[in-house]
Computed example of a mutant assay.
Amino acid sequence: MMLMFSLNPANDWGELVGVASFFAIICYLVSLTSMFSLVKPRREALLVVNPGAEFTVPWSRIRSIDTQNGFVIKLAGSEEIACHAFQGSFLGRLFGNASAKRASGAIEKCRIGRGSRESSGEVESKVPWMRPLSWLALIWSAFAIAVPAVARLL
């Protein structure tokens, strides 16, 4: 659609930048919901990266991991951290969420192996801003500069 808008000679660069900004924001929001999610066991803690937040969970704070509908880490107390890397789905409910169960088993092994080292501390949460900001800049520059320039050259 952006390419077709760029090929129309009646549209000037101001309109192209406006339309490109709209598409860049839409692509950025889609990337926030579909990218950058992971669960990574580390020596001192479990790292959970979701699109909008990053959590470092000490091994001693993890009570259990629930894989019934997605992937939820239950902490001591009543806190829960859902991981977007293993989303719940209808097919997952039918077939048993195999990937979430494998990840849960691997994390449980790490937790048991490292549970003797009482890693104390609170759950650290932070909002990573550099990676999403760089993706927004990359997407915007592709839509606002690259696509119209290439379309007008051809």
Rank of each mutant, 00 (worst) to 15 (best):
M2I: 12
M4A: 15
F5L: 13
S6C: 13
L7F: 06
L7N: 13
N8G: 08
N8Q: 10
N8H: 08
P9Q: 07
D12G: 13
G14A: 04
E15I: 09
G18H: 05
V19G: 00
F22I: 13
F23W: 12
A24I: 06
I25C: 05
I26R: 04
C27D: 10
C27M: 11
C27Y: 07
Y28Q: 09
Y28E: 02
T33I: 07
S37F: 09
S37L: 04
L38R: 15
V39M: 04
R43P: 07
E44Y: 07
E44S: 13
L47V: 12
L47E: 14
V49G: 06
N50W: 09
P51L: 13
A53K: 14
E54Y: 07
F55K: 00
S60G: 10
I62G: 03
S64N: 12
D66G: 02
D66C: 04
T67E: 05
Q68F: 07
N69I: 08
N69G: 00
N69R: 11
G70M: 03
L75G: 04
S78G: 14
E79C: 03
E79A: 15
E80A: 10
E80G: 03
H84G: 14
F86S: 03
Q87E: 11
Q87R: 15
G88Q: 01
S89T: 15
F90N: 08
L94R: 12
L94D: 02
F95M: 09
G96N: 11
G96D: 07
A98K: 14
A98Y: 08
S99A: 13
A100R: 00
K101V: 05
R102W: 04
A103H: 03
I107G: 09
K109R: 13
C110M: 14
I112W: 05
R114T: 12
R114M: 13
S116Q: 08
R117C: 08
E118A: 08
S119D: 03
S119N: 05
S120E: 11
G121C: 02
E122H: 05
E122K: 07
V123I: 10
K126Y: 14
W129V: 15
P132W: 08
L133P: 05
S134C: 09
W135P: 00
A137S: 09
A137T: 08
I139M: 13
S141V: 01
S141L: 14
A142F: 15
A144S: 11
I145V: 14
A146K: 07
A146H: 03
V147L: 13
V147C: 03
V147W: 10
A149R: 06
A151Y: 02
R152W: 09
L153N: 01
L154Q: 06
